[in-house]
Design a protein around this nucleic acid. Structure first.
Length: 1029
RNA sequence: GGGCGGUUAGCUCAGCUGGUAGAGCGCUUCGUUUACACCGAAGAUGUCGGGGGUUCGAAUCCCUCACCGCCCA
C-alpha cells in the first residue's frame, strides 16, 4: 500500500467523525481507566447561532483539555448544549413569519407562536452543533442539553429537566425573598418592548447636543448670581430671575420633578428651597418644581444645576429616591410620548401639589405630556419642545457675530446656545436602538444577598480564575453588584411561575347586616368601586395546583358565598375582572354558588435567558433530581470561556450554584482572549473582516485551524488570525503526513512496544520524545496551549523530520535497520498520541494507516515515560554531529560551494570524544554534510576551516579559494564568539557575581565560556593558517 | 473619571518564578540528494516605546512619561 501524497482532510474528517460517533467514543466515561473525573461544561451557544471564530477558538481549547484527559484515562464528560436565547430566537422566528407573510405573533397568540418557535428549533436549531462536530469537538453529544427542555409545550425529543430546574430555583429564591417584584427604573428596549439587564446595554459615544434653558423663578423672584475664578475673584455678577439648566434630552423636561444643585455650590445658595418654573407646557398650567440640593450635580459641569427626571434617567432616579421627588413617566413601551392616563390639566395640577410637598400618592396615572405632544415619537417631541422654549425666549443665548462677505458689515445676533458634544448613549445589544430608562414592574434577583459566597470562593481559591488579572474584574463587578432584572416581556422563555388574583379587599368590605354574608347590594358595591382599582394577591409555585391551594386559603376568609368560589386560570387581569363580574351576575340569577368563580392569571413575563444558563452546571446533570451524573461530575473541573461573559455568565453561575446547591460550579475558570483579525481589529460584520471558521476548515482542514488557534492561545492575549497562519499549520499537517509516508515506504509500522535500541541516533530520539512529553504535559497542565502547540510543532518538524528521519535513511541499509524501523514506528506513534488532542483527525487517520490497533487513537493511552529515557551520552554525541553538519553546510554555502558537490572531510585535530563520535556517525555526516569519509590530514591550500567542539576540520573546495572571503567569514564568526566570550569573562571576573549568583548559574557560565574559547582558538588557528598561505 | 492590558526582527506574536533575545510568515541566495516545492539548505534584520531606579546582572521587578486598545462609570 502506498499512501497518498497528502492528507485529504475533507474526506477523512467526515469519515472519522462518523466512526467516533458510531463507537460512542465521546460518551461520558469512555476510555476511563481511573476514578478521577474530568468535567467540562460547554458555554452553551445560542440556539440561533452559527459557528464563528470565537466558538472555534473556545471549543478547540476545551477539546484539547478533554481529549488529553480522556487519553489519560480520566472519567471524562464534556457536556454540550445550547441556550434558548430569548430575544434572539423570538426575533428570528418573527422575522421568518414576516417573510412568509404569515400573521404576526400577536395575531396568532402566545401558544401558537411558541409552537412555531419549537418547530423552528427542531428544524434549524442544531446548526451550530453540526458545525462543532466538524471542528472535531468531542462532546458527549448524546447528552446535548437545552435550556428550554421540558418546558410546557415542548415537543417530543425536548423532554428534559431544565425547565424544572429553572422553576424550582425561582420558587426557592422567591420563597426566601431573594427574588422580588418591584417598580424600578430598568433599561427598556423600545424595539422589542422588553426590559433588558444592564449587561445587555452597550454604551456608545455618539455626537449629541447640549441645550441650555432658563427655568424662571416662581413669582418673578430674583437673586444675585455670582461667579468666581479659582482664587475667589468675582468674574461675573448679575441679577437673575432664572436658573440655567443644561440638558441633552429636552423632551424629558416635561417630567421634571425638581432642579438639583450641589449643596456646596455658593452660586445657587440663595435660591435653594424656592420653586422654579418648567419652561414648557401650556402657559396656563405651567408647573413649578423645587430647587433642592444633592451631591450628584457636579458644580463644574454645565451650569452646575441639574433637572431631575426620576422616571427617565438613572442618575436622576437616584436623586429622586433620596429626596422624595415623584417619578413622572412620559413614554410608552415604544418610547413614544404617552397618551394614556389623566388629561394634562389634571396631571399638572397633581404635580404642582406634589411640588409643594403634598402627598399625592401613586403618580403612575399622571401624564405630564401636553395634549399636542401626546403620541409623538420622543425625537419629534424634543424638536417641538426646543422650538417652543426658544420662541418664548427662554433658551440661553449667546452673542453671535457675522460679517457680511459683500458689504463687510458686522451683524450681531443672539442665538440659542447649543453645544455640539459627544454623549454616551445606551443601545440595545440585540436591537441596536436607543435604550430608554423606564419605570416598570419587573422581577429582580436581590444579588447582594447571594454574592458573598461567590466572592469568598474565589478569594479562598476554591475556584481559581486564570489568568489572574481577571480576578480583579470579577471582584470589582461582584463587589458593586446591582439587582439583576430577570423578567423579560417576551414569550419565548421560562414563564414566571407566579399567579395573581384580585384582592377582594376583605378589610374594605362593608357588611351592612353584620351577617358575614354578602348580599346583592354589597356585592355590586364591591364590583363597582372596588375591584378595578384594587390590589392583587400573588402566589408562586412550580405547579398550578399548589397555587390554587394558596388562593383557596386566601379566599377562605371572604364572606360567603364567595369563599367557595372555584379557582380558575384566565389570561390576564382584564379577563379576570370580566369573569368575576360575569360569575357574580350568574350567581345573582341562579343563586347557585357553584357558579361562583375566582379567576387568577399568570404573570406573562418570562425569565432572562441568563437566569437559566446560570444553572447550566447542575441543570445539565439532571438537578433537581439527585442523579448519578450530578454526584459524579459536579462540581465540574474547568470552565473555558471568553472574558466578555465573565459578568453575564461566570459570576452568575457562581452565585446561583452556591445559592442553590451550596458548592462552586467549577474549580478553574480559564479565560481566553477574543480572536481578532490579522491587524488586531475586532471582527465585525460591518467591517467585513469576519473570518468564517468553516471556510478555513474547508480550505485547510480542521486540524490546521485547531493547531493555529492553539498556537495563538497565549494566556491573557488576544489571538490575531489570518488565513496565512492556518496555511502554515496545514503545511505542518502535510509534513507529518509525509514523514509517515516515508516511514511506511521503508517498512516502518507502528503499534509496537517501545524498543531499546543500540544505535545512538535511536537512543537520542527516544530521549527527545521523553523531553517533549514532559514539556507537553507541563504546558497543558498550566493551560499554556501555545507552548504545547509550539513545542510539538518544533519537535515534529525540527527534530523528527529535519534530523531523525534524515539520520535514519542510511541506517535502513545497515545492521541497525531493524531497531531503526522499530524506533521510528514508536516515535511516530508518540507524535500521533501527543498531537491528537490538538489535531485529532490527521492523527487518527495516521494511527489507523500505520498499524493494527486495538483501539482508536481517540482512546489511545497517553504516554507516561519521563526523563529516565534520556541518554545523556547519546544526546551529547548527536548534538555534536548536528553542530558539525551545520558547520560544514554553513561554510559550504557561504563559500559558494555548489550544493551538489561532494567534498573531502579532512580531520586536522580531534579529541577522543570527537573522534569516537565521528567514527560512530560517519555515514550520517557524509550524507547530510555531503562529504566523503573523514580522513586525517593537515589544512592546506584551497581548504576552508570548520570547527566543532573538540575538533577542527578542513574542507578542500578547489584549487583556488577566495582567501579574502574565507578570512572575512572566519573573522565574522570569531568576532561573534569574542563578543559573547567577553561578556561572560566580564561577568565571571566580577567578584559580586561569583559571590551572589547561584552555583548552578556560575557553572553554566563557565562551561559556556570554555566552549566559546575552544571555538575562538580553532578559528584563530584557521585564520593563522590562511594568513600563512 | 476609575480599572486592566499592550508597546520585542519588515509583519503577526512567544519569552513562566531576573542570567543578557526566539518562532511563524515575509525577504535574499542556492537546490529536482530514494517523504514532503504545502519541500530542503544557508543567510540578513532587534539602543526589547522613552526616561529613572533596584540588582553582580533587567525585555523580565519598581517608579514615571508617551502612544494604542479594552472594560466600567
Amino acid at each position: 500500500m502506498t499512501m497518498d501524497k497528502s492528507f485529504d482532510a475533507k474526506a477523512a474528517e467526515a469519515r472519522i467523525s462518523a466512526e467516533w460517533e458510531a463507537q460512542g467514543a465521546f460518551a461520558a466515561g469512555a476510555n476511563a481507566s481511573r476514578r478521577e473525573t474530568f468535567t467540562v461544561m460547554i458555554p452553551p451557544p445560542n440556539v440561533t447561532g452559527s459557528l464563528h471564530i470565537g466558538h472555534a477558538f473556545n471549543n478547540t481549547l476545551q477539546d484539547i483539555l478533554v481529549r488529553w484527559h480522556r487519553m489519560r484515562g480520566f472519567d471524562t464528560l464534556w457536556q454540550p448544549g445550547q441556550d434558548h436565547a430569548g430575544i434572539a430566537t423570538q426575533m428570528v422566528v418573527e422575522r421568518r413569519m414576516a417573510e412568509r407573510q404569515e400573521p404576526n405573533r400577536r395575531e396568532i397568540g402566545r401558544e401558537a407562536f411558541l409552537e412555531k418557535v419549537w418547530a423552528w428549533k427542531q428544524e434549524s436549531g442544531d446548526t451550530i452543533i453540526n458545525q462543532l462536530k466538524r471542528l472535531g469537538a468531542s462532546c458527549d453529544w448524546s447528552r446535548n442539553a437545552f435550556t428550554m427542555s421540558g418546558a410546557p409545550g415542548a415537543p417530543a425529543g425536548e423532554e428534559g429537566n431544565f425547565h424544572d430546574a429553572v422553576i424550582r430555583v425561582f420558587v426557592e429564591l422567591y420563597d426566601k425573598g431573594i427574588i422580588y417584584r418591584g417598580k424600578r427604573l430598568v433599561n427598556w428596549d423600545p424595539h422589542f418592548e422588553t426590559a433588558i439587564s444592564d449587561l445587555e446595554v452597550e454604551n456608545r459615544e455618539v455626537p449629541g447636543h447640549m441645550w441650555h434653558f432658563k427655568y424662571p423663578l416662581a413669582g418673578g423672584e430674583t437673586y444675585e448670581y455670582v461667579e468666581r475664578d479659582a482664587d475667589g475673584n468675582v468674574t461675573l455678577r448679575e441679577t437673575r430671575d432664572y436658573i440655567s439648566i443644561a440638558t441633552t434630552r429636552p423632551e424629558t423636561m416635561l417630567g421634571d420633578g425638581a432642579v438639583a444643585v450641589h449643596p456646596g455650590d455658593a452660586r445657587y445658595a440663595p435660591i435653594v428651597g424656592k420653586l422654579c418654573e418648567i419652561p414648557v407646557g401650556p402657559k396656563e398650567h405651567r408647573r413649578l418644581i423645587p430647587i433642592i440640593t444633592d451631591d450628584y450635580p457636579d458644580p463644574d459641569f454645565g451650569s452646575g444645576a441639574v433637572k431631575i427626571t426620576g422616571a427617565h434617567d438613572f442618575n436622576d432616579y437616584g436623586v429622586a429616591m433620596r429626596n422624595g421627588i415623584p417619578l413622572y413617566a412620559l413614554m410608552d413601551g415604544k418610547a413614544r410620548m404617552r397618551e394614556d392616563g389623566l388629561p394634562y390639566a389634571e396631571s399638572a395640577e397633581i404635580a404642582t401639589r406634589a411640588a409643594r410637598g403634598e402627598d399625592v400618592g401613586d403618580v403612575s396615572n399622571v401624564n405630564l405630556v401636553p395634549d399636542e405632544l401626546r403620541g409623538l415619537d420622543r425625537l419629534e417631541a424634543r424638536k417641538r419642545v426646543i422650538e417652543a422654549i426658544t420662541a418664548e425666549g427662554l433658551a440661553v443665548t449667546r452673542l453671535h457675530k457675522e460679517i457680511d462677505p459683500e458689504t463687510g458689515a458686522e451683524h450681531l445676533e443672539r442665538r440659542p446656545l447649543v453645544d455640539q458634544k459627544p454623549i454616551m448613549q445606551p443601545f440595545g445589544d440585540r436591537s441596536g436602538v436607543v435604550i430608554e430608562p423606564m419605570l416598570t414592574d419587573q422581577w429582580f434577583v436581590d444579588t447582594a444577598r447571594i454574592v458573598q459566597p461567590a466572592l469568598d470562593a474565589v478569594r479562598e481559591g476554591r475556584t481559581e480564575i486564570l489568568p489572574e488579572q481577571h480576578r480583579k474584574v470579577y471582584f470589582n463587578w461582584l463587589e458593586n453588584i446591582e439587582p439583576w432584572t430577570i423578567s423579560r416581556q417576551l414569550w419565548w422563555g421560562h414563564q414566571i411561575p407566579v399567579w395573581y388574583g384580585l384582592d377582594l379587599g376583605i378589610e374594605n368590605f362593608t357588611d351592612d347586616e353584620g351577617d358575614g354574608a354578602l348580599d346583592e347590594v354589597e356585592l355590586f358595591r364591591l364590583l363597582a368601586d372596588g375591584i378595578v382599582h384594587t390590589g392583587e394577591r400573588q402566589h408562586c409555585a412550580a405547579h398550578f395546583d399548589d397555587v390554587r391551594k394558596r388562593f383557596r386559603d386566601d379566599i377562605a376568609g371572604l364572606p360567603q358565598p364567595l369563599e367557595v368560589s372555584r379557582i380558575v386560570e384566565v389570561a390576564d387581569r382584564e379577563a379576570a375582572i370580566d369573569m368575576l363580574a360575569q360569575s357574580w351576575a350568574d350567581y345573582n340569577l341562579s343563586q347557585d354558588p357553584t357558579h361562583l368563580l375566582y379567576p387568577v392569571w399568570r404573570d406573562p413575563d418570562v425569565l432572562d435567558t441568563w437566569f437559566s444558563s446560570g444553572l447550566w452546571p447542575i441543570g445539565t446533570l439532571g438537578w433537581p433530581e439527585n442523579t448519578e451524573e450530578l454526584r459524579k461530575y459536579f462540581p465540574t473541573d474547568v470552565l473555558v470561556t471568553g472574558f466578555d461573559i465573565i459578568f453575564f455568565w461566570v459570576a452568575r453561575m457562581m452565585m446561583m450554584q452556591l445559592a442553590v446547591v451550596g458548592d462552586v460550579p467549577f474549580r478553574t475558570v480559564y479565560v481566553h482572549g477574543l480572536v481578532r483579525d490579522e491587524k488586531g481589529a475586532k471582527m465585525s460584520k460591518s467591517k467585513g473582516n469576519v473570518i468564517d471558521p468553516l471556510v478555513l476548515i474547508d480550505d485547510f482542514g480542521a486540524d490546521a485551524l485547531r493547531m493555529t488557534l492553539a498556537s495563538m492561545a497565549a494566556m491573557g492575549r488576544d489571538p490575531k488570525l489570518g488565513p496565512r497562519h492556518v496555511e502554515g499549520f496545514r503545511n505542518f499537517v502535510t509534513k507529518i503526513w509525509n514523514a509517515t509516508r516515508f516511514a511506511e515506504m521503508n517498512g516502518v509500522r507502528g503499534g509496537g512496544p517501545r524498543p531499546e535500541p543500540a544505535h545512538t541516533v535511536n537512543r537520542w530520539i527516544i530521549g527527545e520524545v521523553a523531553r517533549i512529553r514532559i514539556a507537553t504535559d507541563e504546558a497543558l497542565a498550566a493551560y499554556r496551549f501555545n507552548d504545547a502547540a509550539a513545542g510539538l510543532y518544533a519537535f515534529v518538524w525540527g527534530k523528527v523530520c529535519d534530523w531523525y528521519v534524515e539520520f535514519a535513511k542510511p541506517l535502513f541499509d545497515g545492521s541497525h535497520a531493524g531497531e531503526t524501523r522499530a524506533t521510528m514506528g514508536w516515535v511516530l506513534d508518540q507524535c500521533y498520541l501527543m498531537l491528537h488532542p490538538i489535531m485529532p483527525f490527521v492523527t487518527e487517520e495516521l494511527w489507523r494507516l500505520t498499524g493494527d490497533r486495538t483501539k482508536m487513537l481517540v482512546h489511545g493511552d497517553w504516554p507516561a515515560y519521563g526523563a529516565e529515557l534520556i541518554d545523556a551520552a547519546a544526546d551529547r554525541e548527536i548534538n555534536w554531529v548536528i553542530a558539525l553538519i551545520e558547520g560544514v553546510r554553513s561554510a559550504r554555502a557561504q563559500m559558494g560551494v555548489p550544493a551538489g558537490a561532494k567534498l573531502d572531510l579532512v580531520v586536522t585535530e580531534a579529541d577522543v570524544a570527537a573522534r569516537s563520535a565521528l567514527a560512530a556517525n560517519a555515514p550520517l555526516i557524509e550524507r547530510l554534510a555531503r562529504v566523503n569519509a573523514p580522513v586525517d590530514g593537515r589544512a592546506g591550500k584551497g581548504m576552508i576551516a570548520v570547527a566543532a567542539q573538540g575538533a577542527s576540520f578542513a574542507l578542500p573546495i578547489g584549487e583556488v579559494i577566495d582567501v579574502a572571503a574565507e578570512t572575512a567569514r572566519l573573522q565574522k564568526a570569531l568576532a561573534r564568539s569574542e563578543k559573547d566570550a567577553e561578556g561572560l569573562r566580564k561577568r565571571l571576573g566580577n567578584p559580586k557575581f561569583t559571590e551572589n549568583a547561584e552555583a548552578e548559574v556560575i557553572e553554566e557560565t563557565r562551561d559556556k565560556l570554555a566552549a566559546l574559547e575552544d571555538d575562538i582558538a580553532r578559528l584563530n588557528a584557521a585564520l593563522a593558517q590562511l594568513a600563512a598561505m
